[in-house]
């Protein structure tokens, strides 16, 4: 089941998160909903990301694939070039660079969709309807935990605690 607590202040929300974490709720069970980005200080609700790694890796992959593609295509239809090499790294370097960048762009977009959960929601959890300026904390808990969670949320300063 899901519980939600609505906060007006970021500090209150942060307090609630820390309290719940102390109770043994992991970051996976906690979700913060808001109309504007809420930036907590480091250590409160970190979402580790591999985006940079993925982007660099796919840029390199695209670059390598492009080099192979260009080399393959030029030898696939070998033209007499009058002394110039069939495959020239430097005069096709721009193509490798641009395609590497294309790899970086596409992967950062796709990884954004993946990491944000926009393309992997199988059994959608209920989403609270959040008014502008409100920070809503959604907690995934079992039936027995309901009471503790509600209490923690209210203690931390939630203006409203409800079942979703």
């Amino acid at each position: 089941m899901y519980l939600k607590g609505e906060f007006r202040e970021k500090e209150a929300a942060a307090r609630a998160i820390l309290d719940l974490k102390a109770q043994g709720f992991g970051p996976d069970a906690l979700d913060v909903f808001s109309n504007e980005p809420v930036e907590f200080a480091a250590g409160i609700l970190d979402r580790p990301s591999r985006m940079s790694l993925v982007v660099v890796a796919s840029a390199l992959t695209f670059c390598l694939l492009t080099i192979l593609f260009v080399r393959f295509t030029q030898y696939n239809y070998p033209l007499v070039t009058g002394g110039m090499p069939l495959f020239s790294f430097w005069s096709t370097g721009v193509v490798f660079y641009e395609l590497a960048m294309l790899g970086a762009i596409l992967s950062s977009f796709i990884w954004f969709l993946w990491e944000s959960g926009l393309i992997r929601r199988k059994n959608p959890a209920p989403v609270p309807n959040v008014e502008p300026g409100v920070i809503c904390l959604r907690v995934h808990c079992t039936g027995e935990q309901e009471e503790i969670v509600s209490q923690q949320l209210a203690e931390a300063g939630a203006i409203e605690v409800a079942k979703l």
């Binding site: 033209l79 007499v80 070039t81 009058g82 002394g83 110039m84 005069s91």
Partner: peptide, 23 residues
């Protein structure tokens, strides 16, 4: 030209060096 400036800039190989050295 053996090293014709017109050849490398063509994106579609419409101009190139044939085996007899003709451009």
């Amino acid at each position: 030209c053996d090293e014709a400036p017109c050849e490398p800039v063509c994106p579609v190989y419409a101009t190139y060096k044939n085996p007899e050295g003709l451009n």
